[in-house]
Simulated scan of single mutants.
Amino acid sequence: MATSFSLRLRRLRKNSSLTMEGLANAAGISKSYVWELENREVPHLSVKVLVDLAKALGVTTQDLMGEPPPLQASPEDLQFFRKYIRMDRADKDRLRTMVDLFDRPAAKRAGRRR
């Protein structure tokens, strides 16, 4: 039975456009071990394998394990985020697009208005 780690590993692998074999080669493990990690509950995962998987996926070990980063946000920001996580996917996509527009350098924003 897949665990939250298994599902997270599969999602990160697919988001990185890696096959099981590609991830296995990049992490220095076997393809069958990647399959096992994605499809079964693995009682013990060595730190070395965890670090190698994270490097191969371009994420931190905390990301791979699902540990949330420490937040240093104002109460207003946390309240906004709580609202955000309850939104449906379409609304989240629209909000991300708006935030990306604000995040562009001011010169590019000014140049597009002309």
Rank of each mutant, 00 (worst) to 15 (best):
S16V: 09
S46E: 11
T61D: 02
T97H: 10
A107W: 02
I85M: 09
L78D: 02
E41C: 15
Y33F: 13
G111V: 08
A2P: 08
D63S: 09
L23I: 14
Q62Y: 07
K14F: 08
A24V: 04
G66M: 08
L71T: 12
K14M: 13
R86M: 10
L12K: 05
L12E: 05
L23K: 05
D100H: 11
I29E: 01
L101K: 07
E76G: 12
E76I: 13
M87C: 14
K108I: 01
L23R: 05
A73K: 06
W35D: 11
S32N: 14
M20A: 13
N25W: 02
D100R: 15
S74C: 01
A73F: 08
S30M: 09
K108S: 00
E38P: 04
D63W: 05
D100C: 11
Q62E: 09
D91Y: 10
V34A: 05
F80V: 04
R104L: 13
H44D: 06
S16G: 10
A54P: 03
V34P: 03
E21I: 14
Q62P: 00
F81V: 14
A54V: 12
D93K: 14
R40G: 00
E67W: 07
S16T: 11
K48E: 08
M98D: 09
M65L: 15
L37P: 00
S32E: 10
V49N: 13
G58Q: 04
G22S: 03
K55T: 03
D52M: 07
T97S: 11
R114L: 12
V49M: 04
E38D: 11
Q79L: 09
V42I: 06
G111L: 12
S32H: 12
P68Y: 05
K83N: 11
R112F: 02
Y84I: 12
L23Y: 04
A56R: 04
T3C: 01
D88Q: 03
E38W: 06
N25C: 03
L7R: 15
A90H: 11
L64N: 00
P68T: 11
L78T: 04
A73M: 13
P75I: 01
G28M: 02
F81S: 07
S4M: 07
T3R: 00
Q72N: 11
L18T: 13
R96I: 15
G28K: 02
E76V: 14
S30K: 14
R13E: 02
N25D: 08
R112E: 06
R104V: 12
V42D: 00
K108T: 01
D88R: 03
V51C: 03
Q62A: 15
E67C: 05
S30R: 12
A54M: 08
R109K: 12
K55L: 03
Q72Y: 06
D77M: 14
A90P: 04
F102A: 13
V47C: 06
T97W: 06
K83Q: 11
V47K: 05
S17A: 15
P75M: 02
K92R: 15
D100Y: 10
L23F: 07
A56S: 11
V99S: 09
S17C: 10
A90C: 08
R94P: 01
Q79K: 14
P68R: 10
R10C: 00
M87A: 10
D103E: 14
D52G: 08
N15K: 13
S74E: 02
G28E: 02
A24W: 03
F81H: 05
L57R: 00
V34D: 02
L9G: 00
E76H: 09
R112G: 06
